[in-house]
Design a protein around this nucleic acid. Structure first.
Lengths: 248, 248
DNA sequence: CGGCAAGTTGAGCCAGGTCAACTCCGGTGG
DNA sequence: CCACCGGAGTTGACCTGGCTCAACTTGCCG
């Protein structure tokens, strides 16, 4: 009578980490969803094609880093968004949009959720709905913030923003530290913030020379001077009265 | 016994345009939501402050164009997103993000929805939920596409993208035309695509010289050569096999 | 320890930013 | 009806941040 938690799920962060979607499901829901879903391991460069995404448009990231990449006509490519542990990527309706691919930037594990069961579960379980919705909103805000970063900031500022994002997005779930883990390669980082790898390198060096950051190794940086970093990242105007009329 | 459709709603596009959220509600739901919500007219420059947004974080756009603006420490400001008729802006959870304002770019009408009633309605009415969710996903995709545009493209390409966005976003709901209405001023457009107004001007002229667009007046452009425009906008790589391994 | 991918450094160049002057247009008041 | 005004948009000249290309160094894995 009692259903048991599927083995796949037991060891999956989406389930055992309580802030994530699967942790909100009843055992029964989890079993139903798991039965129709597919847990996949990906290596660097592996892609979920857009054809595949049309059929299985909902993806939950269990570990690793995925990227949403756009390829432009001249071969330039660009990383539009990064997804990490706990993110639910809902690409329903992507069909009428520009072509894009979901590509893993390293080893990662994802769960391709059955849209049908997902939809059932979400409409039956308000708590699960809230969790997903919150995640989707966060993605939207991240995308919006990111497009601000991309549109007006210069390279150094973009990089500072990115370091801060790294610092707050993963590590600090557990404990607040002054360490940021850069979970992706320089090339990918460059593509994400829309500059050349060379520029990334130069900017890192600049921050290092100013004593603001320090490299533990290529992918781990210690933040020596967080306020300075924030200032460069150009946190938004906290200043005085804006020249706008507040209507409410 | 029968509740009547509130007058505010009768004349509001959110209700009479069937693709929008309010059109999906039962009369009873509409009355409840309307009772707790506030219909507001805004002029250019009017803002909903972030304090106000904390309390009333859900906004439906009935007409006009709103912008989500970020102000940076040095006074540079930047338009992160544009919202138009039918968009549901859900800023719940914005509190822990960077400061930003929702500012009207012209005359507009919005409805500030009661979060409580909204939440009730959405969890009770799956069709309404789907409508909102779809809109939110679209916003996310738009934000992502926009950040791609911002990060790698050059000015001319960004502008072409924007023109296409204008062409597809509003006008073509009704009929497909080769006309795009630019619903905002040059300055705002410049801020949105992350270049200077001067550059916008130069790029418009360039497109005009090449015979790709033609101005009817400042805010209405006829697209003389849509394929060329798309090519410049750099629609994504439709080309042959990508150098990625498709895992599924 | 070799070999290759990843990352860094340097030199030169150009797209677009900056600043300043100018034009265009709609509204206002005499 | 016209002169004036201010805001919006445009044009030109100059300058700089970051792209490009090529050479170099570092780090990783067998």
């Amino acid at each position: 009578m009692t259903s048991l938690i599927p083995n796949t799920c037991k060891s999956c962060s989406l389930h055992y980490d309580s802030s994530n979607f699967c942790a909100r499901l009843t055992t029964d829901e989890l079993v139903r969803l798991n039965g129709k879903s597919r847990f996949v391991s990906m290596k660097r460069g592996d892609a979920l094609s857009d054809e595949a995404l049309l059929q299985w448009p909902i993806i939950a990231v269990s570990s690793g880093v995925l990227s949403l990449q756009h390829l432009m006509a001249d071969g330039r490519k660009s990383i539009a968004a990064l997804y990490m542990q706990g993110d639910i990527i809902d690409l329903r309706g992507i069909s009428n949009r520009n072509r894009c691919n979901l590509i893993s930037l390293g080893n990662s594990k994802v769960c391709r959720l059955s849209p049908a069961v997902f939809e059932q579960v979400v409409s039956a379980n308000p708590e699960a709905l809230n969790t997903v919705w919150k995640n989707v909103r966060e993605q939207t805000f991240r995308a919006i913030d990111h497009s601000v970063d991309m549109s007006k900031k210069q390279a150094l500022e973009k990089l500072a923003s990115f370091i801060i994002e790294c610092n707050s997005r993963v590590i600090n779930r557990a404990k607040k530290t002054a360490v940021a883990k850069i979970p992706i390669r320089r090339v990918d980082l460059a593509e994400y913030i829309g500059v050349q790898p060379e520029t990334v390198s130069r900017c890192f060096r600049d921050l290092q020379n100013r004593g603001i950051i320090e490299f533990d190794n290529l992918s781990v940086v210690t933040l020596k001077n967080v306020p300075a970093l924030r200032e460069i990242a150009n946190g938004d105007w906290q200043g005085d009265a804006q020249k706008v009329k507040i209507v409410a």
